[in-house]
Nucleic acid binder design. Sequence first.
DNA 1: CTGTATCCTCTTGGATACTG
DNA 2: CAGTATCCAAGAGGATACAG
Lengths: 132, 132
Amino acid sequence: MAMVLKVRKNRSAPPPEPCALTECMAVIAGAWAPNVIWHLRAGPRRFSELRTDIPPVSAKVLSQRLKELEAKGVLSRTIQPTSPPSVEYALTPLGQGLVPALEAIVTVGHQLKAARMAPARDQSLPRLAGSV
Amino acid sequence: MAMVLKVRKNRSAPPPEPCALTECMAVIAGAWAPNVIWHLRAGPRRFSELRTDIPPVSAKVLSQRLKELEAKGVLSRTIQPTSPPSVEYALTPLGQGLVPALEAIVTVGHQLKAARMAPARDQSLPRLAGSV
DNA sequence: CTGTATCCTCTTGGATACTG
DNA sequence: CAGTATCCAAGAGGATACAG
């Protein structure tokens, strides 16, 4: 009688890289950090531009996020010596590495929206195993 | 010394899909939701298994997240009619769509870790535009 | 085993006013 | 324009005890 043990193929699923997951999630966590990175992906933006890009964000929070993202090495802050002083924020190479991940997230976002449009044919009662 | 003017090509950067971004971020936001999905990617897991997969999560929060993720259509909850009743959680097709995004995030996580190891050669003083 | 209930703390984020 | 300071509200999450 071989195979008694069952394979339970993935029952002991390996936690391959949950650490790296958390590492990145810490950067894109929160309501605004992902939006900031997203709006910087095409090129540098100024503080006030970001504010109009993402209207509902408050100045305080935007300032906080930008400071944190800079500290994490994701974006750079450059002071433009113009008459009314302006400041440009841009993704660093490290920050640009986040763009593909955000694009993947956006892709899933579309799937989620589509799924909400067609929530159809899906029993929503407690299911017993085996009931189809 | 050409290239003084630069094009400022993307000064009016388009906000293509910030909405989809937020849509997906709402699903993978928080400290535990991404980990739950990650540990389900290889196959169904039971409540207690997820607890040991992700030790620091409390029962209350794990329960809350599972309920929310189920409500969002990302995972399914199936009661196994075994002697000590057990419950299996599994990704729905919609939830499986999140896996590539999480993989992209994990990839960036590695880059971030590597970058922290070698934070070297990087001036950290306020920079004026033009100073290299 | 699979949760729920209560209580508590910390962080995120908004509103408003103010500074350089 | 580019923030900072202060105050406040809401939610996430932890600990513990308890329930089906």
